[in-house]
Design a binder for these strands. Structure first.
Lengths: 253, 253
DNA sequence: GCAACTTTGTGCACGCGTTCACGAGCGGCT
DNA sequence: AGCCGCTCGTGAACGCGTGCACAAAGTTGC
């Protein structure tokens, strides 16, 4: 456990609950699998759409179909967070939506700080999808003197060196790093020093962080390379298929 | 299998290789786990950095440490693609790098089309990290008349209706969707009709696609919500921990 | 009030991915 | 040349996540 597992896409080992609460008053969720958490967010979004459409109740089959998952998986996911569906009917959209929001910690607005106002950072700063979903970007940072001092969407860009001060002041809980790769670790260190315990990293580096800090990595180049692999594999398969038809064994050209 | 599995983060079932080549001339990779492919891309990047630094050989332990993974996992990952390390020494950086590039299909440049030139789309279009890594964005699309006709980074923005024509003309193999949610399925359908078989979807919807088409989903809001969950869990744990210290059992306030 | 249908919640088995541990092979040293 | 130490490659066990299938429970219709 010396190097950070750096949970990007796939799973962290588990969510080992440390606190040893004996009886426990509330039916607090015990240990929710990481994969489940990711899906809960999807369920939540779809429930929101259903609520807007005025739908009152929804069955696990219906919701699962919309979310593109197995219905049994959905029910199990919801059972992890102690959901109370109504047998013979389904789930009440409103209460379930509220429950998931609570579980995901969306009842309190989470201030987000963004470090690195380059191409991607600028887009993230202006992206409406965050503020609208309870994640207002309240702090922007960069090192470029041309950027420090300007405002984006009404938010002033501060210098990176002020991260600890500003983040504490604005009660930032989540940091996003969209700097070039070489600057990412430095930005990360400053965020950690500011007390930020969750970081979304867009830079193509593996961040070194203390154990308590949670890092998720989004790497667009990697995503493309995965797709590229599939393209290559497909081409290969096609060619092999053709050869198999022609000759019945792969022959070196 | 009626609804699309929509492999975003975590895994697709497998990569069932259809072709039944008896003996097989080349040591073609059999069935590479999806998770492994994602890591191969990371290894590749780190190998590139090592090559720039002039490093000649690297052991699995060293490379694994840099990539933030277990060394055994790294060796197994490389064995999936039939890598030839040197026992007692390690891996030769140059050859391995070339081999991985070949495996991931990066030897041929893959044209990328981007649909939706909003906030995020604009950033993706201007993001240098793609072209520099063998994924030149060669086509841009939107429906907004104010955007159609302008150039971004030298690429003309075409109307979405021209997707099939333009994509075939420019031999696009990968499509990226950065439209608002309601427009995503339509954009996807057009890309599929254009013969694009791999799609990177940034819109928060589950795309319906034919079986042969590979979709990966990147959902920034979901990423933040996952982090938010961890924040909430941590706060909860802290409070429980405090209560446990104070009282030794959770008491309703 | 009872029976039949619907839908949730979950125990269980299967399969994939990860991890450990060890044998196999290669280079360097004497 | 032979031995020693190092590192790759991989067989096997473990653990997690997924999917099936069924019992429990609630609702509707008669």
């Amino acid at each position: 456990m010396t190097s950070a597992p750096q949970a990007g896409p796939e799973g962290t080992p588990a969510l080992g609950e440390a606190a040893a609460t004996g009886t426990g008053g509330a039916p607090a969720a015990r240990a929710v699998p990481e994969a489940t958490v990711a899906r809960l967010a999807v369920y939540l979004r779809m429930l929101g759409e259903l609520a807007e459409q005025g739908t009152d109740t929804v069955s696990s089959d219906e919701l699962a179909a919309v979310c593109g998952v197995n219905s049994a998986k959905l029910r199990k996911d919801l059972s992890y967070v102690g959901s109370h569906g109504i047998r013979g009917v389904g789930y009440e959209v409103g209460p379930l939506l509220h429950h998931l929001e609570s579980t995901l910690g969306l009842t309190h607005r989470q201030s987000v700080a963004l470090v690195g106002i380059g191409n991607l950072g600028h887009a993230l700063a202006g992206y409406g999808g965050f503020g609208g979903r309870g994640f207002p970007v309240t702090a922007l940072f960069d090192v470029d003197p041309d950027l420090v001092g300007i405002k984006i969407n009404g938010i002033l860009v501060d210098h990176v060196r002020d991260i600890p001060h500003v983040c504490r002041e604005r009660d930032v809980t989540i940091g996003m790093i969209a700097t070039p790769a070489p600057a990412a670790q430095g930005a990360c260190d400053l965020l950690v020093r500011a007390g930020v315990s969750c970081i979304l990293n867009f830079a193509p580096v593996v961040l070194q962080v203390p154990e308590q800090v949670e890092v998720r990595k989004v790497d667009l180049a990697v995503e493309l390379q995965i797709l590229s692999f599939h393209v290559a594999r497909r081409h290969l398969a096609e060619r092999e298929g053709l050869d198999a038809v022609n000759g019945h064994a792969v022959v070196r050209s």
